[in-house]
Simulated assay, not measured.
Amino acid sequence: MVALVPTETHGDERGALLNFIEAQRAAIRRSLHGLTEEQAASRPSASELSLSGLVKHVAEVELNWLRLAQRRPNERQRTGETWGDGFRLVDEETIPEVVGFWAGVAKETEEFVRSVPSLDDTFPLPEAPWFPKDGQVSIRWMLLHLVQEAARHAGHADIVRESLDGKGSYELIAAEQGRG
């Protein structure tokens, strides 16, 4: 069973970075394997995190970064939504809907990254207390940040899933491939 990021990157940095992001996306999606909506929404630990909420969060974070890099408004931001609403399904959202949304974001991210002239191209950060004043980051930095963000939450997803039914990532890889 393969658990490593594919080594086939077509010899380019963009491909390698996109493969690492996709590996982390897959780990998060895999944490949902075989669960009901109710199980995926449960919070089996002291944390407020649920698996369905993590999927929604990482999808929306990726879209936010993509829109910043594209210098476009994020059409998905909702008024009246609380910070916590970004970590749980609301208004009849479903796991298939959120996973499908994330797949669209992932496709758009890849198309955008492949279209930019250079990974050294920069874009401005919005004003926020957690960003440097007049900050700029490169497309490369954004991709590395997306790896970091998704990997952090893939680890959270591992712990939440193990708390639900004891299944770890290797068991889920095997189950997903029909070997477990």
Rank of each mutant, 00 (worst) to 15 (best):
P129M: 04
M142N: 02
G166T: 02
T122W: 06
V147H: 09
V160T: 14
P117C: 06
L125C: 07
V137L: 01
P126Q: 05
A154G: 03
R140W: 06
V113R: 04
P124E: 11
V116D: 00
V113H: 01
W141N: 10
G168S: 07
P132T: 11
D120Y: 10
G155R: 04
I159Y: 12
V160C: 03
M142V: 10
D121Y: 09
D134E: 15
F131H: 15
T122N: 02
H145M: 11
F112V: 14
M142L: 12
V116F: 02
A150P: 00
S115K: 09
E162Q: 15
A128V: 05
D134R: 15
R114A: 09
E162S: 12
S115M: 01
F112A: 12
R140F: 13
I139C: 07
V160D: 07
K167P: 02
L144Y: 09
D165V: 00
G166S: 05
L164W: 03
V116Q: 01
S118H: 11
D121F: 10
A157N: 01
S169T: 15
A128M: 09
V160A: 06
F131P: 10
E149G: 01
F123G: 03
D158T: 13
S163R: 13
A128H: 14
A150T: 15
S115V: 07
R152G: 04
E127A: 15
A128I: 03
G155N: 02
V147A: 09
R161P: 12
M142W: 00
P129S: 10
S118F: 12
V147T: 11
A151G: 14
A154L: 04
V160R: 08
A157F: 09
L164D: 08
D120M: 09
P117L: 08
F112C: 08
L143I: 08
A128Y: 09
D158M: 10
D134T: 13
Q136G: 12
K167F: 04
